[in-house]
Design a protein around this nucleic acid. Structure first.
Lengths: 265, 265
DNA sequence: TTTTCGTATATGTACGTACTAATTGATTTC
DNA sequence: GAAATCAATTAGTACGTACATATACGAAAA
């Protein structure tokens, strides 16, 4: 079973293994390994459909324990990039099998990053609002609290057909994080994390179908009454403090939500 | 930090800990622990909103390693029943926070079991069909293959308002698994697993919004044109062999799909 | 009174070992 | 030639250890 890693390893030194230096980053080791593996899948080192080197081989090649490799593989399995079978090995899976549908729901925080990175949020409107009535209920806060309200359209990175209509409410205490942004190329909560240094610990998502009204339909290139999915997201910082609330309306004809469940045993 | 476990433990023997016998079942230990913890949450031993005993306490009380407890907790965290914070502890979360919405999408195979167990699938119609045209494409098989086609309505276990309209296609080779079933109280794929002994390794789900037609709307107590979600599921056995294909139509007014994403770090 | 600092506590990370069980493929046997 | 058997391989389970890091709480200092 000759593979890229072992071939590269043949002449490699101890300090740098497969061009990967574990000591530079601050993220947990297993996450670094996951990113490393993912990068090598993306650049073709590990072909889609093929088997990864065994866990023991990877552990030795990368200079980490098998446990750490397993944790990394676990992350990528959750994302659907890898699948494992006892007695066989770990297979590289295709990212998106179904045709014509775009991935829009994340299964992990990091996936939310990736989706945002592939799209651009063009901000069209912003104002400070005071949460009252339904909004206060949606935000789960007491009435009167101030939020920065931003609306706009999210486009694919190549600026094709509109991706979604977005509305975002940001806690006024952290709203400065996006004050100069007119086109967001990363997730909004990423700007907030960068600005405050505080990490978003938890994101709650819910999805419901709706029929688009004329206004929104026009902005995303549909017509009134067309089917769509509305995705609500609540972003919580430490101590379950709500920092951001956002919803997104996605035309139904362009999106399918796909998951794969695997046997736990 | 006095808790149910340690109180019960005080007078317990080594053989039986908290009324739990690890040796009876065949499932992995961490899964047994997860089920045990979940049961104790359900029956109120661990109150919603409170902190679980620490991992070390649980490990000692149950007579397993901390690693095993962590794996079990990990399962329940994925399901949203538990949330953990470094330096604080593991908190029991409410199952369903949002009002009026029912859980209908699984995040794991075991969750699919549970949802099925809480509902009854009343089979109204069944016939053998030969996959042609669109159906062959949906099933991803060559035309002419035989499937058992079953349709019916799924009700809550208490026989309240209809839950969903269901259509199921079962590979003719395993169709005998459900030949005597008129009301399914478990997941269909569970019958197949029991019959064949073969385990379903992977389930692919996708969700799209649709507008219900008159026929189906009537069966689930809505009216034509009402919004709904359609959930497609493909069930694969070993070697990615498609054993079952099913879709389910859920009236939008009664269902929301909710997930929580947590920081990986 | 408020702030700062240290300490205890809990989960998170990372390593190690050993064994279990599913799968594959070669070998043997009928 | 087909079926059964065995051995090698690989992911899965389970245990152990040690240390890192975020959090909460109380004591000391400003």
């Amino acid at each position: 079973m000759s593979n890229a890693i072992s071939e590269e390893m043949t002449g490699s030194t101890q300090e740098i293994k497969n061009g990967w230096k574990p000591e530079i980053a601050t993220a947990p080791l297993y996450m670094q390994v996951a990113h490393h593996l993912e990068a090598r899948i993306s650049n073709g080192d590990f072909a889609v459909g093929s088997l990864l080197p065994t866990e023991n081989e990877l552990a030795e090649a990368l200079g980490v324990s098998r446990q750490t490799v397993r944790q990394a593989i676990g992350l990528l399995r959750n994302k659907g990039r890898l699948s494992a079978r006892k007695g066989v090995g770990t297979r590289v899976e295709a990212i998106e099998a179904t045709s014509g549908s775009t991935r829009f729901i994340a299964h992990s925080r990091s996936e939310l990053f990736e989706i945002a990175a592939e799209t651009e949020f063009v901000i069209g409107f912003r104002e400070m609002v005071s949460a009252q009535g339904k909004l206060a209920v949606d935000l789960g806060c007491r009435p009167g609290r101030k939020f920065l309200h931003i609306t706009g359209v999210r486009y694919p990175a190549n600026r094709g057909k509109a991706f979604s209509w977005n509305e975002v409410y940001i806690d006024s205490r952290v709203a400065a994080a996006v004050k100069d942004i007119t086109v967001a190329r990363r997730a909004i909560f990423h700007y907030i994390e960068e600005f405050t240094g505080e990490k978003i610990h938890e994101i709650q998502q819910d999805v419901r179908p709706i029929a688009m009204d004329e206004d929104i339909a026009e902005k995303v290139g549909g017509k009134g009454g067309d089917l769509a999915l509305i995705v609500n997201r609540r972003y919580y910082g430490s101590g379950r403090r709500l920092l951001e609330y956002a919803f997104q309306i996605l035309p139904a004809d362009r999106f399918t939500y796909t998951t794969t469940l695997r046997a736990e045993t």
